[in-house]
Design a protein around this nucleic acid. Structure first.
Lengths: 138, 138
DNA sequence: TTTGTTTTTGCAAATCATTTGCAATGAGAA
DNA sequence: TTCTCATTGCAAATGATTTGCAAAAACAAA
């Protein structure tokens, strides 16, 4: 919690109940959660859905959570550890949405390994690169 | 067009004006397009936006277009060649949304190569695996 | 601990992408 | 040419996410 405290203070931000509660939920859920899931996990009426959306933006900017997009239209978030940079991949079941964290980071050749190792079938992957193009760098 | 014709016929589907027009736009745009962009590229009033959404679903099911998700909330589509399976990656500028097609399929080590080769800066990548989990396979 | 200032929150309304109901229209088989 | 079923346009419905605004909460300073 000290990490949150100092980081928030450094941004002229306040340590509010909703924010602590959200971090709490994230801390005890090692899987990516949607804003709605976080909302549901919070004690009833603990805070508004809009507040969760706003908090996630803030925490993301501060680098405390990582945003994931599984392509189903809802963003998902995971807490980033003190040390790690939060970079890892996910193996998502297209039927029940079960999520398995994948530590390694290679590809293609890994598809088979990942499929076999986890017993998943018809595994595919989606990959996009992001950056700043030459024109925009000027 | 013969490919479209035969494929559509094989699915008890009709060859309509909107569908031909959409394929036409896709054919002359080698980059992923959003439904809205396709709509805008179509001669005014050529067809409804809803029809484009419906057509893209159909074409995707038929394997004639590939759907891409750059995480900005809008799906993008590209025509899949007769032969190729449409598998390739994209390098997207986070500022102007310029898109560069990346042929190779490896990762991480490639990030630097891709960044250098295209003059892009701060390149990152997003990757997710999809499949059917053991429980769902039963 | 009281006050003053600034950030946050709740709530409701607004956006945006995408989907859907339904009656009218069009494509293709007979 | 006719008949039937797929398809379309249009408008309304969804679902995720954002935003305006006044009230409430944090916190620094007194």
């Amino acid at each position: 919690m000290s990490a949150l405290t100092s980081r928030l203070r450094g941004h002229t931000r306040k340590i509010t109940g909703p924010r602590q509660a959200i971090l709490g939920i994230l801390r005890r859920h090692p899987h990516p959660l949607t804003n709605k899931e976080i909302f549901a996990a919070l004690p009833r009426g603990r805070c508004d859905l809009a507040t969760i959306y706003r908090s996630m933006h803030l925490l993301e900017e501060m680098g405390m959570v990582k945003r994931f997009d599984f392509g189903d239209g809802a963003a998902r978030f995971e807490l980033v550890g003190e040390d790690d940079d939060g970079h890892h991949h996910h193996l998502v079941c297209m039927r029940c949405a079960e999520v398995v964290e994948i530590e390694e980071c290679s590809i293609r050749e890994l598809e088979e390994q990942i499929a076999a190792r986890n017993g998943f079938a018809t595994v595919t992957h989606k990959l996009e690169f992001f950056g700043i193009c030459p024109r925009c760098q000027r």
